[in-house]
Design a protein around this nucleic acid. Structure first.
Lengths: 356, 356
DNA sequence: TTGTATGCGTTATCAC
DNA sequence: GTGATAACGCATACAA
């Protein structure tokens, strides 16, 4: 337990006042080169580093950002694969800009409670907040943050009135692209299976699904939409139901790759062929979609970009350099077409580079 | 931006001194019931909550724990699936005990640099440290933390001298169990493929592999050990090499499930059967092992327990209730036997419940 | 350019 | 029981 060295020590060793030492530390102008050198020497000699707590108390700024990760309850491990690149990008961006990151995870249920935010943020230990959620961020949350004067950014979701800055990706357009692709493969009977319908991205995908079918002039009764969980088992079970339908769908869009893999298993067991009898597409481009046979057509959301943009925006807000741009940023997704939705014309079993 | 209410406001509204108000807040004895009530009333009325920063400065304690996640460089997303349950468990444990969690990720290369820890921890903003790593935590890191008087716990690794408290799981014994299982299936020629050999758990697995073969009385030349990355592509490539070997291994133990899936693809392409010609087993029990055909035998490490125990231990240390037990905790793994290593005797295609 | 003095919001140590 | 008051370590307005 080494004696903790304070600014006072530095000042006395350097033979200057506390104020001068402080000025050097903070790079303020108006210090003679001579004194500056002496202070820097003392700092090195004493191996001094400022106490961030004391500094925070004096300045009113903490230098830390709170990341609130809103999750399913109970937690679904498979959704993690979707959130991780976002979190990673947030972390890297925040750290690069010399901010600390404090992470809190909570369920959507907890997050909605009126007492959650006050309890979590009343400590005065953070300067800004990032909310990573798949659900609507309700008005009272936005109001609470605004009342506290805490800058915040919503990542992956938005608030009902689009009052807050948010960055999302375009789920609607992604599904529309999938439908278009499947349509070009000759499909006419579509189904959609997904996880919890209360999540915003699911809502957006359903919307894309419906609107795309309308655009194609396909009758509404062709819509077959089923909800379950975000996992393999759910995909399996829902697909079994779909196979019984008349007319049987020939193209199934799944809310994520796990659902899709489950669906593929159900199709294979029933003796039908993929994609000849039923085409399957997933969402998220996770590794499971690359180890199935056939490989899975899927959607690759710009997760890293999402996290980076959200974090960058918050930091800008915090340092006061935020431009007055659109409050809502919607990023496009990339559709990755593989064999599960496209009948191979040439037999070149193209090797695809592994993309994490 | 609402006016921030301080303890002074509470005291004046309650008509007592700062000290008395503080005593009530902190639940100290020696306050009259009458004054206590008045203060509590004022707190409610003003919606007061203490400023954690000021409190930290006064007490010298911050109430936050730093979690340092040491990762591959560049980051391998697949290792995340291994770390996530640990992180989740750490988070939940820490939060339940009313501590804040500050998370930092860094590469092993960064972590090793002598300047990393000082830079990261010199701010005085954390009371304790959790290190989540797959690599050896070097002496200078341990020394640095001890010098700072910061309690810390190593999760998933250890230091060279076992001076620090650490919690790991038993990789050696897990591989020994796998070998024993495969031996009982009649295998005599074993191979091991894994990721980076510098990681501690890989080292331990190799050790288990070698010792188990010795125990079985199998000649050392039968050892076939190959290293690559932790992903599907690596498993595919390494397996292709192994297939060429004479004698050809009939049982392959893979460092994780992704490697195993890649290996299975290579075996399938070569026209060999799993498990009749070559048995394959993985590690980690991730979802990919449940969507392959046949399903993958694997090892399920006690990840949640690992995180919980580590975090609990640190908290005990911080509140001074740590018992003087073993400094090293080694948790057993569970072997999950599926069709990729066991020739089915009965044709009941048993449905296994999905376990995240 | 430099130093003195005050405040940041708490806790804790005294006297009372 | 209670209330001044001195820390805690730093930043900064102000005076010099």
């Amino acid at each position: 337990m080494q004696k903790v060295v304070t600014l006072k020590d530095v000042a006395s060793v350097a033979g200057v006042s506390l104020a001068t030492a402080s000025r050097v530390i903070n790079g303020h102008a108006g210090v003679s080169a001579q004194n500056r050198a002496k202070v820097e020497e003392a700092i090195r000699k004493l191996n001094y580093s400022p106490n961030a707590i004391a500094r925070s108390l004096a300045t009113g700024r903490t230098g830390t950002i709170s990341l609130i990760i809103v999750q399913e309850d109970p937690i679904v491990p498979t959704t993690w694969s979707h959130e991780l690149p976002i979190i990673q990008a947030i972390h890297d961006t925040v750290k690069t800009q010399n901010w600390e990151l404090q992470i809190t995870m909570c369920s959507y249920r907890e997050f909605r409670q009126p007492s959650f935010l006050p309890h979590h943020l009343s400590r005065g230990t953070v300067d800004g907040v990032l909310i990573l959620s798949a659900w609507l961020v309700e008005r009272h949350v936005v109001a609470e943050l605004k009342a506290k004067g805490l800058p915040f950014v919503i990542i992956g979701a938005h608030d009902p009135d689009y009052e807050a800055f948010c960055v999302e990706f375009d789920n609607t357009e992604a599904v529309r692209s999938l439908v278009k692709h499947l349509r070009s493969e000759g499909h006419e009977t579509f189904a959609l299976i997904g996880g919890a319908p209360d999540q915003l991205h699911m809502e957006a995908r359903v919307q894309g699904f419906v609107s795309a079918l309308q655009d194609c002039g396909l009758p509404i009764w062709n819509q077959l939409i089923e909800y379950g969980d975000w996992n393999v088992e759910s995909g399996y079970a829902l697909m079994q139901k779909l196979i019984q339908r008349k007319p049987r769908p020939t193209a199934v869009i799944c809310g994520n790759d796990y659902l899709a893999v489950g669906a593929m298993q159900a199709i294979a067991e029933s003796g039908l062929r993929i994609p000849e009898d039923i085409a399957v597409v997933g969402f998220d481009d996770t590794v499971v979609g690359r180890v199935t046979l056939p490989k899975l057509t899927t959607v690759r959301p710009p997760l890293t970009q999402l996290g980076r943009l959200g974090a960058e925006r918050l930091v800008q807000e915090l340092v006061g350099s935020a431009a007055d741009g659109d409050r809502r940023v919607v990023l496009p997704c990339e559709v990755v077409i593989r064999a599960s939705s496209k009948v191979q014309t040439n037999q070149t079993n193209q090797k695809e580079a592994y993309r994490p």
